[in-house]
């Protein structure tokens, strides 16, 4: 397998990664942008990717600079195969399944609905209204 073919496999795998739901800052997009040229594919033009400095600039009076890299990256075939192996391992959810914390942490005694409420809000399936919001602020759950 050449670098190009390996990079193509990696791009294909990255394409299948779900998008972040909380923010526009995306691991998937940034990595696609990095590996597409290696796979001989073109990056989309006018691609307005959010970077961390844009996000900081929105909320802060001061700005931060992104670290400037001084040298070009040299990626070998072995490197890309390693990345593919790791991405597959993350995608297989083996760590979540093996280190299953069980209902003790996923439905915590102090606040059993915590994760369900959070995920419902993030997925947009149920919105918190004023009363439930006030209740959470005042009672803490």
């Amino acid at each position: 397998m050449s670098v190009k073919e390996a990079a193509k496999t990696l791009v294909k795998l990255l394409d299948a990664v779900p998008k972040e739901r909380l923010t526009t800052l995306s691991l998937k997009e940034v990595q696609l942008y990095r590996y597409r040229p290696l796979a001989g594919l073109k990056n989309p033009e006018n691609n307005q990717k959010a970077s961390i400095s844009d996000i900081v600039a929105k909320v802060n009076p001061y700005s931060i600079k992104e670290p400037q890299l001084t040298k070009e990256e040299h990626v070998t075939e072995e490197d890309i195969l390693q990345q593919i192996k790791s991405l597959k391992s993350i995608n297989s959810n083996q760590y979540r399944d093996y280190y299953n914390p069980g209902d003790k942490l996923l439905k915590p005694k102090g606040h059993p609905e915590y994760y369900e409420r959070l995920l419902a809000e993030i997925n947009g399936e149920s919105k918190e209204n004023l009363i439930t919001g006030m209740r959470t602020v005042m009672l803490g759950k």
Binding site: Q94, D97, E113, Y115, E116, A120, N123
Partner: peptide
């Protein structure tokens, strides 16, 4: 109704690891 909806992904049993 909120408690019934399950967004939490249930882990599958797995006994081997890297």
């Amino acid at each position: 109704t909120r408690a019934n909806s399950s967004f939490i992904q249930q882990p599958k049993p797995l006994n081997t690891i890297d």
